[in-house]
Amino acid sequence: MYYEEVMKLKILPTNLREKERYLVFEGISEIPLAREDVISLILGSANELYGSCGTSRMGLWVVKVWNCPDLEVKSMRGIIRCNRDEIIALRAVIPTITWFRGKRVSFHTLGISGTIKSAITKFIKFNHLD
């Protein structure tokens, strides 16, 4: 613990950092989903479709999940971070999510953005106003 606090790594220079994109998705399900459920769904589906090697290349991270109150179906929106070169592969993973604990779920991509701020402005807040 002490070692981690003292020896904190310096952030990589911008030219050496991984280039990232943010994918905004919408999910509908028969049961409410928490952030941990979304993580397990997306990582599980990516593993099934591309295997461990392909999933590791994507560098997936679920940034944030919002639950939207809806009467008929439980719907939610969220943001996933992914390496820029693998964003099409991540987009292919999204429609392969079909079941969660014996209940039906379905995910759609709303859009892709370069920053979290613009992802929220373009696809999350804008859609709430609809």
Binding site: I28, P95, S106
Partner: peptide, 18 residues
Amino acid sequence: NSIYDLRSPRDVVALAAC
């Protein structure tokens, strides 16, 4: 058969690359 089976066209384009 249900709303859970529908996929958006651009997601289908990405999936078809598989």
